[in-house]
């Protein structure tokens, strides 16, 4: 190949690279609503994670952790916390320890199996410098539950509702008791209602406790009609409308 031909190809390549790089390829389309939604969801997820991480952030180190003592050494105890796992609590000489009888006690009185609330300064993500320690009763598990569904049946005489959660394919029997607080939101205003204000097809959110009288039933503590029967049907119809 002659020198001229080589030179020609070199110049051609240089021209191509220099001038073509002036116009970058068009970026991804960011106007797609699905892409927007996924981006927002990702942002929220990240924010959520940051919030979770901030539970162990050292920016504001004053923290309190409840848990069961599983190990005791010379100057520290290991707590088994319900949601964060094991946590070391350093016990300095200045720590204040309050026993279950609300009286001050000493470190040597703490025992494995004691349930404590340790307040202090977080010195690392798994270590707390104890300032005040309370020996407390182990908390009872939460017996209330929050359920969501559509009213499929109402017995106004027995004051019993049947609620169906189609998503989970679950059916609940709910009794309305004298302490049940029921509300409905309409036109941005929340109003109190009684059983006569409920209709089959209403979409509701209910906070319940196990029934004292019937183990198969739940007692309504609080009920909110989210979407009235006709509106719920409209929403459902709207969802089923095929997108053009």
């Amino acid at each position: 190949m002659s020198k001229i031909t080589k030179l020609f190809f070199v110049l051609l390549t240089l021209n191509f690279l220099l001038l073509a790089s002036r116009f970058p390829l068009f970026a991804q389309d960011t106007t797609d609503p699905n892409a927007d939604y996924l981006r927002d969801a990702t942002k929220e997820k990240v924010r959520d994670q940051i919030q979770e991480d901030s539970a162990l952030s050292l920016d504001n180190p004053k923290r309190a952790f409840a848990g069961e003592i599983i190990k005791i050494t010379d100057n520290q105890v290991t707590l088994d916390t319900p949601r964060l796992g094991e946590l070391q609590i350093i016990i300095p000489a200045t720590v204040i320890i309050i026993g279950q009888n609300k009286a001050k006690t000493t470190f040597d009185k703490l025992q494995i199996g004691d349930y404590i609330l340790a307040m202090g300064l977080l010195s690392s993500t798994t270590q707390l410098e104890g300032k005040r320690i309370l020996v407390i009763d182990k908390p009872e598990p939460e017996n209330r539950s929050i359920i969501f569904g559509k009213i499929s049946d109402i017995s106004k005489e027995e004051k019993v509702l049947t609620l169906k959660n189609e998503k989970r394919n679950e059916v609940y029997s709910l009794e309305i008791v004298s302490t049940s607080k029921m509300t409905k939101k309409a036109a941005d205003k929340v109003t109190n209602i009684d059983i006569t204000g409920l209709k089959t097809g209403d979409q509701v959110l209910v906070i319940t406790t196990p029934s004292v009288n019937n183990p198969k039933m739940l007692s309504v503590q609080m009920l909110r009609v989210i979407s009235a029967a006709s509106q719920a049907q409209n929403d459902s119809a709207l969802q089923n409308t095929p997108t053009p």
Binding site: Y37, K45, R47, D48, Q51, A55, R63, L238, Q239, T243
Partner: peptide
């Protein structure tokens, strides 16, 4: 409709901003 049909990676988003856990 498009938003409803978009599968969310983890269902409903939920974050507690304040107070911080523990």
């Amino acid at each position: 409709s498009a938003l409803q049909n978009t599968p969310s990676p983890s269902g409903v988003i939920l974050g507690i901003i304040d107070p911080v856990d523990n």
